[in-house]
């Protein structure tokens, strides 16, 4: 493993947090009426998706 254990745990925490954020943004976007707010949420979804993919690759690297 090329990462330190505490780093991997930290990435794990962020991944857990971001997962709930993404789930919330995805479901709540359907309940919103304002277009601008919808756009911001879509942007949040896109960014969170990419960030989660990065976490996934780090975590799979860390797995032995």
């Amino acid at each position: 493993m090329k990462y330190a254990l505490h780093e991997v745990l930290e990435v794990h925490e962020m991944a857990a947090f971001k997962t709930t954020c993404l789930t919330k943004s995805k479901t709540m976007k359907g309940l919103v009426t304002d277009q601008l707010l919808k756009d911001i949420m879509q942007q949040d979804i896109d960014i969170s998706t990419r960030q989660l993919q990065e976490y996934a690759s780090i975590l799979s690297n860390a797995k032995q």
Binding site: K2, Y3, A4, H6, E7, E10, V11, E13, M14, I58
Partner: peptide
Amino acid sequence: AVTEAGTPEI
């Protein structure tokens, strides 16, 4: 998290 990470990549 940033202040806990040491590996440059992370």
